[in-house]
Design a protein around this nucleic acid. Structure first.
Length: 429
DNA sequence: TCTGGGGTCCTAGGACCC
DNA sequence: TCTGGGGTCCTAGGACCC
């Protein structure tokens, strides 16, 4: 039996999540900004229609444009988006068995339809759209194909071409119809083909999906590697990969630009400690232990007048651990090596690596040792306090105990309608 | 003044082993 | 004069994704 996949994806996800609770944001030009209110990371249909605001445009560079078109901006509200994502994915998941859904990103989900040959793609897509909209207020598009890459392509068409009305099923097309459509889509719109590859392919005279499908696959593999070969195979209707099962993360990163520049060691130390706290929380949530801690610092690369410095280094722990104090300590050692006075630091980050599901490291000279029961109790209690009161009430060293001076700016943030009792939406009778 | 954050996979090349 | 060859593991960096 031929495999069949669907990709369901929310339109303008962050903007839609904002508008779901604020009717005045519906039908108006709206953007959502990255951390620190830096860049545009989501645009409403009205902003996309202007064609002048690209993804990633710095907000401070488009003030005039915003005034001219009445563009409203919102700070990113990841607590709201995370919760709306969970709700949306749950509704999408009601159409198949759990093992046939892969939540691919915050706003996208693959469904494997192979087991449900009786489901007509068009009908299913329309039903998903209706149910998701009714239950969450979010509008999705649905693409269906014989591989995940085809489903992605179909979703792209469903989103961009009004005649599809949000649902595109490539599996129902004849060979000739499929070829004709592929002649109208640029390689750049294919999942897995980014700017670099597009440049190289264009130079070889390959600009449309049809040309890519017909190209000499052996030659392209030799030149660009196995990834492109798989993409072409999938475009031609043979799935190379099925659904990905959710694996624990192999690395955990926490990193932020500072709300204001930082010059001194103590300031950096408090930020790095905060990042470690956040990363450790993720680590403990997935039940992993880290074997290596990396830290990096960055000056502001956009300031040409500044001397640039962006060092990075890591340290291997004697035994993998999930103990926030041990991880903070390791990060402090690395930071001590990296820090040099006299620079205008703008950003820092930490990375937990070599994650395992055990505190024991194989072949360690001294043997792995579990933290003592008392220690475990302390760590678990910390987790509970974080869970119940939020992350900013207790921490190690400088982290999170009080507002740190370089915290990010989120001047335009909306309420966290669905996750905070004191930020619930109020309705006036 | 202000320019995001968090991931994965693959490959080439060096280190090291026998 | 002439200095092996094959294999694995690790790391850094590139490309991509959302």
């Amino acid at each position: 039996m031929k495999e069949r996949f669907a990709l369901v994806d929310v339109n303008n996800f962050f903007c839609s999540a904002e508008a779901a609770f604020a009717p005045e944001l519906k039908g108006v030009p709206l953007v959502v900004l990255s951390n620190n209110d830096g860049c545009v990371v989501s645009r409403s249909a009205e902003v996309k229609a202007l064609q002048t605001v690209k993804m990633g445009t710095p907000w401070h560079q488009m003030q005039d444009l915003a005034k001219q078109h009445g563009i409203i901006a919102k700070s990113s509200n990841y607590e709201l988006y995370g919760d709306m994502s969970r709700r949306t994915m749950t509704v999408i998941g009601t159409f198949v068995e759990p093992s046939d859904q892969e939540v691919y990103s915050i706003d996208e989900s693959f469904l494997r339809l192979t087991k449900y040959p009786h489901l007509d793609g068009q009908t299913l897509g329309r039903e998903i759209r209706a149910k998701v909209f009714l239950w969450t207020g979010m509008m999705v598009c649905c693409g269906i194909g014989f591989s995940r890459t085809q489903a992605k392509l179909a979703n792209h068409l469903a989103k961009k071409r009004p005649q599809y009305e949000g649902v595109c099923d490539l599996t129902k097309l004849s060979r000739a119809e499929f070829d004709d459509i592929c002649k109208t889509v640029s390689v750049n719109d294919v999942w897995g083909i980014g700017g670099r590859l597009t440049g190289h392919l264009t130079a070889m005279g390959i600009t449309t999906v049809h040309e890519l499908r017909c190209a000499d696959i052996k030659r392209l593999r030799e030149r660009f590697g196995v990834v492109l070969e798989r993409t072409i195979t999938e475009l031609n209707g043979t799935p190379v990969s099925g659904l990905d099962v959710v694996e624990p993360k192999q690395q955990i990163i926490s990193s932020r630009s500072f709300g204001s520049p930082c010059y001194d060691y103590n300031g950096l130390h408090s930020m790095v400690s905060t990042f470690i706290a956040r990363a450790t929380a993720k680590l403990r949530k997935q039940g992993s232990y880290a074997g290596r801690v990396c830290v990096w610092l960055e000056t502001n690369r956009f300031r040409e007048q500044d001397v640039q410095y962006h060092p990075a280094a890591g340290i291997r722990l004697p035994n993998p651990t999930n103990d926030i104090a041990a991880l903070t300590n390791a990060a402090s050692i690395v930071l001590g090596r990296l820090y040099k006075p006299g620079f205008r630091y703008a950003k820092a980050g930490v990375m937990l690596e070599e994650l395992s599901d055990s505190a024991h490291v194989q072949g360690s000279l001294f043997g792995g040792s579990e933290p003592s029961p008392e220690r475990q109790k302390l760590l678990t209690t910390l987790d509970r306090i974080h869970h119940r009161f939020g992350k900013n009430h207790i921490g190690v060293g400088y982290a999170g105990v009080k507002r740190v001076p370089h915290e990010m700016q989120r001047a335009l943030m909306s309420p966290r309608y669905t996750t905070r009792w004191d930020e619930l939406m109020e309705v006036q009778a």
